[in-house]
């Protein structure tokens, strides 16, 4: 029975992912659509970061927020993404002590 769930989950995940590969082949977009699509990565990052980051610690939303602020600062001073990630983990670790 679980195997059926896995196959179903796979199909409804993979089909929406792969359809654009075929659609793009056949379509040329107007400039405004291209501008919209090129803004999607930044919009997606925004929507993925907030408000989700508040639930890093579901009981204390400020912990995720503070970890995020540290990440913003580390990224702003130009550190590599790996260091930004490690810095945020350390921050949250100590805040949770």
């Amino acid at each position: 029975m679980i195997i059926l769930i896995i196959i179903g989950m796979s199909l409804v995940t993979m089909i929406p992912r792969v359809i654009p590969a075929f659609v793009i082949e056949k379509m040329q977009f107007r400039p405004w659509v291209n501008r919209w699509l090129s803004a999607i990565p930044y919009a997606a990052l925004g929507a993925l970061i907030f408000p989700g980051i508040l639930s890093v610690n579901p009981d204390k939303s400020q912990i995720g927020l503070l970890g995020g602020i540290v990440a913003v600062i580390l990224a702003y001073i130009g550190l590599n993404v790996v260091l930004v990630v490690i810095g945020a983990i350390i921050t949250v670790y100590f805040l949770s002590l």
Partner: peptide, 20 residues
């Protein structure tokens, strides 16, 4: 405690990608 702290990792990665 460590695995809870690592819950911030992917968010921090998104931030680290967005800021530059």
């Amino acid at each position: 405690r460590l695995s809870q702290s690592m819950g911030i990792a992917l968010y921090a990665m998104f931030i680290g990608l967005l800021i530059p």
